[in-house]
Design a protein around this nucleic acid. Structure first.
Lengths: 369, 369
DNA sequence: CCTCCCCTTCAAACCGGTTTAATCATCGCG
DNA sequence: CGCGATGATTAAACCGGTTTGAAGGGGAGG
């Protein structure tokens, strides 16, 4: 695994990147032909063994495996991709504003989960980060036309989103990652019932005595935004409470702060607010604190995501937690099955959890109005 | 881009994934041969045009481009990879504990930056998330042996890290992503002088009257952890201040809280603490607040990263900001040059910023001891 | 008008696997 | 002992591009 020290030392001063490339290129790749020769069989035999198909005697298989091992050979993904017309790679296109990117709790965990599902099957993940819709369309187009991937995940789905069809028309398999009941044109949707978390949250606030519960929405149009809003609204109705004030925001901290001020400026401000994500909720706590409103004594706050920071802010944030890693793994397994034309596994995603911490508390008696 | 509605409707009920795969496979791929035929030239001519090499008349080039456009053809990355023995893809392996993954401000931004640098050159990014050192080694091994990528980024470098050599020995080009002065065995290191931010932070605290400044380190052994610690220490020495207490933590919120308690439990606790990242700093504020110690009146806090939440916690966090996106772009451009044997561009990374917010303030007179 | 040279153009080999179809050896059975 | 069936084995075609080397064509110079 190491170059001899003296070689490295000798080259160290004069070595330019170009030289290095040339040097490494010198090491001739070992191919299936070399393995076949060493095992005294044909290339086909080697291929058969490595794709475990019948038609090779136990003795031959044995020799082939040993030869491959001796030579440290592994089929080249490049060559295999060409002859099988399949890349064994899938794509994920992330569209995010820079502001939200580094704080988004979803994608890193989702990717980690996807990775688990993919590596089991020896698939790779090709990632693309774009900043607008235009870039996203181009990305899928390129991924498909250049045959870089066999399938893609679709996230951040909007109501009436045409991407599932568009992408399928490019010849790619598609798995849509969206809340369970999302209304999309997709064949396959993998999602959790995240609205359940919001319902639990509203019930929790109700049991603490809150009767006037507001909501700060994320970017309108996305199915997860709407699912959360609807869950909040439906639960209020179900509990016989008035549907409280809603303000539209965009998942950023600044929008969460602004929305909170709007709600607190109302003639009759809510005593509790359910936010579309943790970032807005935390910014909301900050906004309230700035106005001298104490959390949770004067205002209860519920977030969504359970980011790792949630327990460490003041007060610790009550929020909703999804198992995003499991979600990603399920999505990956499904997509691979789809690509290979197999029946996707029956998957049960773990349910959403509601985590009670310090940002929610009992209502006080009505403040003097 | 859409299937006729009636077709979709008819299939909707009975469609299984397997069927879909078969259906889409029916659409015959258009190849370089088709384009050549349509333009009335040989495949070579088409290839020449698309790799802009000389040897094709203007007229022919014109016809070829139009033919390709008409047919919507684009060279297949699969085929190109095989014949050029190059994938036009590079790899990034992320090793992170689940706890840190969703809160890590570095990787998403870095990836976004990398993406910018890569897409300019039509390269793709292959991502792998692993959870331990063993998985990481396997990941590089697989990436190289299966010829999935031409080069990789190396992050989270430790002092004396052998990965640069190991990976180069696999025949991959390598760019090491680490602070400027990192001591590694790599040919190419792309980094920022992030220690400068810590120096600025210590000077700032000094100017506010602090004379007793502690530090909470991240995971020991990493070059960025050590660079920050060293910057803190060197600056104290330079200012003629005693080198304050240091506690080792691991970049997680819980470790930051614990470390903070340790520092505050000291017979003579520091009046200011510099943390290795924002997450620990925020957890530190929370820990201090729990003990009735006010920030910044009783304790000043400085973080590192400037996560989007930093302005929205109470009090807003003073911290150090690096332009991670630019860093990623630079790393990507360098890696591509390396892969292609070209001279890497001369790159000037923007310098680190120090952002003063509310978590730092003047010292009060010495508290009764 | 003939050479020589340069520019275009293209057929064929190649990259490293997979897959098909044909050959060969073996074996059971009438 | 002959024959069809069965399983092992492999040569050759193929995936869709790139690259090489040779052939063809036109213009400048003598």
């Amino acid at each position: 695994m190491r170059y001899p020290d003296e070689v490295n030392a000798a080259e160290h001063s004069t070595l330019t990147p170009g030289d290095r490339a040339t040097r490494t290129a010198g090491a001739k790749r070992v191919t299936i032909g070399d393995v076949a020769a060493r095992a005294g069989v044909s290339k086909s035999a080697v291929s058969f063994v490595f794709n475990n198909r019948p038609g090779v005697s136990a003795a031959a298989r044995e020799r082939i495996l040993r030869a491959a091992d001796d030579l440290g050979w592994q089929p080249s993904a490049r060559a295999r991709a060409l002859s099988r017309s399949r890349t064994q790679a899938v794509g994920l296109v992330i569209r995010r504003e820079p502001e939200l990117l580094s704080t988004d709790p979803f994608f890193p965990l989702f990717m980690a989960g996807v990775e688990i599902g993919l590596s089991e099957q020896n698939y790779s993940l090709v990632l693309q980060v774009v900043k607008d819709q235009h870039g996203e369309r181009d990305a899928y187009e390129r991924l498909a036309r250049e045959s870089r991937v066999d399938g893609v995940f679709l996230t951040d789905v909007r109501a009436g989103d045409t991407r599932p069809r568009d992408v399928a028309a490019l010849g790619l398999s598609v798995v849509v990652v969206a809340p369970e009941d999302a209304d999309t044109e997709a064949d396959v949707v993998i999602g959790m019932d995240d609205a359940a978390g919001v319902r639990r949250a509203v019930h929790h606030l109700h049991s603490l005595g809150h009767r006037h519960i507001g909501h700060v929405m994320g970017v309108p149009g996305y199915v997860h935004t709407e699912a959360r809003r609807r869950a909040w609204e439906d639960t209020l109705v179900e509990l016989g409470l008035p549907v409280g004030p809603v303000v539209t925001a965009d998942f950023t901290g600044s929008s969460g702060a602004r929305a909170t001020h709007e709600l607190l400026d109302l003639p009759r401000p809510p005593s509790a607010i359910v936010y579309g994500n943790d970032l807005m909720a935390i910014a909301g706590i900050s906004a309230a604190t700035d106005r001298g409103i104490r959390v949770p004594e004067d205002l209860s706050v519920v977030g969504f995501d359970d980011i790792p920071l949630a327990p460490y802010i003041v007060p610790p944030l009550t929020t909703v937690r999804q198992n995003v890693v499991a979600w990603g793994t399920a999505a990956a397994q499904t997509l691979v099955s789809l690509v290979e034309g197999k029946q996707p596994p029956e998957i049960r995603l773990p349910s959403v959890e509601f985590v009670v911490r310090g940002s929610t508390g009992p209502t006080r008696h009505r403040r003097p109005s």
